[in-house]
Design a protein around this nucleic acid. Structure first.
Length: 277
DNA sequence: CATATGTCCTGAGAGC
DNA sequence: TGCTCTCAGGACATAT
């Protein structure tokens, strides 16, 4: 479940490709259903071959590789990884970029479940097709005021609102639970009913947790799927206070057990004592 | 328009 | 042991 911290770690991990000249972009033979790639791989290869990788950036939960006028947009979704040279295995490698003249000569998109996508677009299309109307401001840089305005515009439960990328981009299921626990806010509380001080605290908790999780290189869960670009696990899972801790004692109050509920068909974990309505 | 639900996919783990 | 079933959730499509 790569979310903002995991995707940011991937971006940082593949930065050594910057300065390299792309020699080829290919899809390896694969026993699984191919992932969604737009346009056809042959077109992508033709357009990118010979282009220099100028920069790598993150757009919400997507990795963007800048090469000349082109933007290669990699969306890991559930189990996708962007790695330099050491994927967890080779059977789930979905895309290979070969490079010349950079510190590293290969970058791969690996995806076990194959829900991830790859798109090649121009800067203009990056905005019109992907960012505009689909992605709110980035969770790391959104101001407290903007965050409060956007979040309180919906009556949905605050946990569900945090997952909506139109409102704020980058928060996913795991960090939404973590952030609400630190801010001591009940996940079922309608976003529109949050008080000013609570919104300010939520904003602060969100940015603190995401920043810390980046420093820890993200969370690797029990399935072990998430890895950084060098195939090493993250460390933030050791700092989780509620996620995947159902029936375990709350680390803050030591009085209640962590509860799991389902909201919008996703698990939410919270402490009924610390996060009262 | 706002909100809710269904869908895609593979592999891990539960239960029999 | 080996089978079948359920579940994990990001983001979009479709329904209400």
């Amino acid at each position: 479940m790569p979310e903002l911290p995991e995707v940011e770690t991937m971006c940082r991990g593949i930065r050594p490709i910057v300065g390299g000249i792309i020699s080829s972009v290919t899809v390896p033979k694969c026993q699984f259903r191919p992932i969604q790639i737009e346009p056809k791989i042959r077109t992508i290869d033709r357009r990118l071959a010979g282009e220099c990788v100028d920069r790598v950036s993150r757009l919400g939960k997507r990795v963007v590789v800048h090469a000349g006028k082109w933007r290669l947009v990699l969306q890991p979704k559930m189990t996708g990884l962007v790695v330099i040279d050491s994927p967890p295995d080779f059977e789930h490698v979905r895309l290979i970029i070969e490079l010349m003249g950079s510190q590293v000569t290969r970058m791969m998109f690996w995806d076990r479940r194959g829900l991830g996508t790859v798109q090649l677009v121009t800067e203009k299309e990056l905005v019109s097709k992907i960012a505009a109307g689909r992605l709110g401001p980035d969770a790391l840089s959104i101001s407290a005021n903007d965050f409060a305005t956007r979040l309180t515009a919906t009556r949905r439960p605050v946990k569900v609102a945090l997952l909506d990328q139109h409102i704020v981009a980058g928060v996913g299921n795991l960090y939404a639970s973590e952030v609400l626990h630190v801010a001591k806010i009940n996940p079922a509380c309608p976003a529109s009913q949050l008080s000013k001080p609570r919104l300010a605290l939520l904003h602060q908790s969100m940015q603190e947790i995401l920043t810390t999780a980046i420093a820890y290189e993200g969370s690797t869960l029990s399935d072990g799927a998430y890895r950084n670009a060098l195939n090493n696990p993250g460390a933030y899972q050791n700092a989780h206070r509620v996620y995947d801790r159902e029936n375990q004692l709350c680390l803050s109050c030591s009085k209640s057990q962590i509860k799991r509920i389902v909201q919008a068909q996703r698990s939410t974990f919270y402490c009924p004592n610390c996060q009262r309505r």
